[in-house]
Nucleic acid binder design. Structure first.
Lengths: 132, 132
DNA sequence: TTCGGTGCAAAATCTTTGCATCAAG
DNA sequence: CTTGATGCAAAGATTTTGCACCGAA
């Protein structure tokens, strides 16, 4: 892969964040340093970085894909109320691959999983409504 | 919900299948009986049926959403080679919700999970290539 | 110089929606 | 009749791509 400052900038942007930005967010931010960068380039580089395993793509089926600098195996929670995506600290659950393979006539190679819930902020809002 | 023959036809179509058709597939099929039905109507009804829990929507982040008549809790495998989605017979893994909640400052309400792998057909193709 | 990367805009893909009309209750 | 459902087409949202040009090696 040939060096490019745009890709480097995207990489640095992601490396500096612990949340899970969308392509659009990356674009908006990188645009500050490279005002001419195009959304297409951002998408191309995010795909590229995902393919080589430098970043992780998170598809929730709700809204745009998100990208995560942290490629260590870990899971996410998606808040039903505000849509935010958070890292989850939890033990390894790769044993579910074995369970899945037990009665499947093929090969199980992995899984995609994320949790649905309500984040702390949104829970507080709920509580404030209940106690007016 | 007011009765409509189009919705009934969509419902029947899904009830008669054990695979996981896309909106487009439903559309193409229902069109045989109602040539004037529009894709919009199909989408509207699939959303509606999903909302009331009569069917289940499966978003994999690869290609279009799929719909499943079977609303009993169960999991799916997505074949990396051919993209097909298959039912999986496996024991309940709701305990992962507990694991996820252990260190999360919010409420875990459920999870979305599917497995990636290779289906039997595609595995056979692999084998045929290796033994020419 | 070479060839991959970029910018731009157009297109592709999937889904939703506004509106006049139709049909279920 | 009244109101929700439909058909149609247009628009939305997200992502990919063709192509001429630019810049890294």
């Amino acid at each position: 892969m040939k060096y490019s400052r745009q890709r480097e900038c995207i990489r640095e942007f992601l490396a500096g964040r612990k949340d899970h930005p969308t392509a659009e967010t990356v674009y908006t931010s990188v645009k500050k340093e490279y005002p001419n960068i195009s959304l297409g380039t951002v998408y191309r580089n995010l795909s590229l970085l995902t393919d080589v395993g430098e970043i992780q793509k998170i598809s929730t089926g709700m809204g745009p894909d998100r990208f995560d600098w942290n490629t260590n195996p870990h899971y996410h929670v998606l808040c039903k109320k505000c849509g935010s995506v958070m890292d989850l600290k939890m033990e390894n659950i790769d044993h579910i691959n074995i369970l899945a393979g037990n009665e499947f006539e093929g090969r199980i190679e992995g899984h995609i999983a994320y949790f649905l819930g309500t984040c702390q902020k949104c829970m507080e809002q709920e509580n404030n409504k209940n106690i007016p």
